[in-house]
Computed example of a mutant assay.
Amino acid sequence: MTDLPPADLLDEMTRLRARTRADRHAYVPPLLLFGVLVLLAPLWAAGGPPRFGVAGVWFGTPLQLYWLVAVVGGFLATAGWYLYRGGRRGVRTPIRAYLAIGLVGVLAISFGLPVVESFAYRVARSPYAEPSFTVPVAAVAVLALGGVLWLRPKLGSRGARGTATAAAMVFGFVALAMLDLHFAPVRPYAPLLTIALGLLGLAWLERSPALGVVSGVFAATALLANLYNLQNVFFHLGLFERYEGPKTMAFTNTLLPGLVLLAGGAVAAWHERRARA
């Protein structure tokens, strides 16, 4: 039996729970990593001829390749970090769902963006790129995705859970495809939304309100970058001309999302340091 008074024992248990959660949380390096990767994207935005074409679809512009490497590398580096951290701390957040989000996002970047950009003029004139089509389909896909994720833990057999996982990936891909159809002909920033979805999924797996807030703010800025040309803000502030080339446009549209991730990572690191104190 302990000699600590009940109030002191309760405080000690609270501190131990906070320290255990901090040991399990490992999202600070991924936030900082993705922040740096987003801020580096404008370096490859100047463009260039695609490297190869298949059935009229041209692949391999510098920015396409960069986003592919950044998203794949970022998700794999995050998974590797969680495995390493879990081995050292003895507690680890399961990351299979996070990797599934990354796979769906990579498929969207690998195929969706090149297809849309290769036929940008036709896509822009197609009724299937109109908000009256893309928004309802994306909304239905997101609702179906939520329903499948809610149902999956209640399924008894492994086969049923595997089928639910596959269905969730299909619905996620449909939602991202609608985003590609809607955004890519004007601004190639759909990969930001893939990163945002991954971080939101990680926040849910971590049961972390702090990561949820950072991911939510980042998702809002990523959506803003796809809906509105943020270079107009810099133009009205007198910092840039209305258009100074693709690198400047990419810089002004990725600056805010990248800074949100870096600032969120710094605040999260400070918060976790306090939790372990």
Results as ranks from 00 to 15, higher is better:
Phe183Glu: 01
Trp204Phe: 09
Phe235Thr: 11
Leu107Asp: 03
Val54Arg: 02
Met1Val: 13
Val116His: 04
Ser157Arg: 10
Lys247Phe: 09
Leu39His: 09
Ala124Val: 00
Ala55Phe: 00
Pro30Val: 07
Ser208Met: 12
Ile109Arg: 10
Leu179Gln: 09
Gly264Cys: 07
Gly198Lys: 00
Asn232Gly: 07
Gly265Trp: 11
Leu103Lys: 01
Ala164Glu: 14
Trp270Phe: 15
Arg92Asn: 09
Pro6Thr: 07
Val104Met: 09
Ala277Ile: 14
Ser208Ala: 15
Ser208Arg: 14
Leu9Asn: 10
Trp150Ser: 13
Gly73Ala: 03
Leu9Phe: 01
Ala120Lys: 04
Thr93Tyr: 08
Thr221Arg: 07
Pro131Cys: 02
Gly105Pro: 03
Leu262Ile: 13
Ala219Thr: 01
Arg92Gly: 09
Asp8Gln: 13
Trp44His: 08
Gln231Asn: 11
Gly112His: 03
Leu155Arg: 03
Leu211Arg: 12
Phe111Gln: 02
Ala268Trp: 08
Asn232Asp: 03
Pro136Ala: 01
Gly198Cys: 00
Gly53Ser: 08
Trp44Phe: 12
Glu117Phe: 09
Gly201Phe: 05
Tyr243Arg: 12
Leu255Ser: 08
Ala184His: 01
Leu256Pro: 05
Ala22Ser: 12
Gly159Ala: 11
Trp150Thr: 15
Tyr27Thr: 14
Gln231Leu: 07
Phe235Lys: 11
Leu143Ala: 12
Ser132Glu: 12
Leu63Glu: 08
Val36Phe: 13
